[in-house]
Each structure stands twice: as structure tokens, then as C-alpha cells.
């Protein structure tokens, strides 16, 4: 599943047709949801499928179809500096990998987590979300409201006046 997600991410950033790229990103999201399930985060997996694969990706596909990019195929899909970009991406990945090796987290598998009852179910998440995390939750709702208003203002057709 990890290999499949890496492959689909690579295909997603390298395909020429934006719609194909969207579909590869969809497979990436579904694989990441499967990894969430393996990690015992069932609610997170459900949110991943519903919000990411269901809502966000549909939004992207709508915009791609709306904009109707005809010249994407004709132009080079990467900039001139794409080897530099690849180097920077490799550097980031190597840095994260080194940090992973340095923290000492890596050798110990999740031994203590495997014994207890599975966390990450709906009730545990809900209790935590409305208990100690109530204030960030409300702030997230405020942020989403601001995003809705901002998107409407940005995408609105200019009024007839000045």
C-alpha cells in the first residue's frame, strides 16, 4: 500500500493531462486512508475518504473542467528549473528521513499501542474533540466560515458598478 501510494503520487505530479493527475491523486488519497486504517485511526480514514476524496477532489475536478485547459498539452508541463526542483524535493525527503533516523523513534515498533484497545474510534475522537480540544474546534469552524466568505468574494462576478 505504501508502494502504491508513492507510485500514484509520482504519477500524479508527472502526468500531462490534469484530469489524469486528479485521478492519480484520488488513488493516493484512498491508499493513505487505507494506511490510516492500518494505524488504527478509523475516524481519520473515514474523514480522509469523505472530505478529501469526496469533497476536495470533486472541487478540483469541477474547476479543471470549468477552466478547460486546452494548452496544457501543448506547453512543457515543467518549468525550466525542474532538475533544481527535483533536487530540492530529494533534499526535503532526505532531511525528513534523517530526522526519522535521528529521533530513535524508528527501532521501537508500536508495541505498547498494540496491546491496549484500539484508540482512534469515533467515540474517543469525539470525546477529545469536544472536551479538551473544544476551542481549536471552534476556531476551525471560524476558519472554514472565513474561507467560504473569501471564496465567494473572490469568485464573484464583478458588480456592474465601479
Amino acid at each position: 500500500m505504501a508502494a502504491a501510494s508513492v507510485a500514484s503520487a509520482l504519477l500524479a505530479v508527472t502526468r500531462k493531462n490534469p484530469v489524469h493527475s486528479m485521478l492519480w491523486v484520488l488513488t493516493l488519497f484512498l491508499h493513505v486512508a487505507g494506511i490510516f486504517l492500518l494505524l488504527g485511526a478509523e475516524f481519520l480514514a473515514a474523514v480522509q475518504v469523505i472530505v478529501y476524496a469526496g469533497a476536495i477532489l470533486i472541487f478540483y475536478i469541477f474547476v479543471v473542467m470549468l477552466l478547460d485547459l486546452p494548452d496544457e498539452e501543448a506547453r512543457p508541463r515543467f518549468g525550466k528549473h525542474w532538475p533544481l526542483a527535483a533536487a530540492v524535493g530529494l533534499c526535503f525527503a532526505a532531511l525528513a528521513w534523517l530526522v526519522r533516523a535521528g529521533t530513535g523513534v524508528a527501532p521501537a515498533a508500536t508495541r505498547l499501542a498494540a496491546e491496549g484497545p484500539p484508540r482512534g474510534g469515533l467515540s474517543a475522537i469525539g470525546m477529545a474533540l469536544f472536551g479538551p480540544f473544544a476551542l481549536p474546534f471552534e476556531m476551525a469552524s471560524l476558519l472554514l466560515l472565513a474561507a467560504i466568505v473569501g471564496a465567494v468574494v473572490l469568485a464573484r462576478r464583478r458588480a456592474a458598478g465601479p
Partner: peptide, 18 residues
């Protein structure tokens, strides 16, 4: 896996023109 995916994302963000 997270590191590899993040690297791919950085590469895509820097290299794509769309």
C-alpha cells in the same frame, strides 16, 4: 513513507507550471 510523499509534493509544487 511520509518523508517520501512530502518530497514528491515539494517536487511537484516547484516543478509544475499549472
Amino acid at each position: 513513507l511520509s518523508a517520501v510523499l512530502f518530497g514528491i509534493g515539494v517536487f511537484g509544487f516547484l516543478a509544475r507550471r499549472n
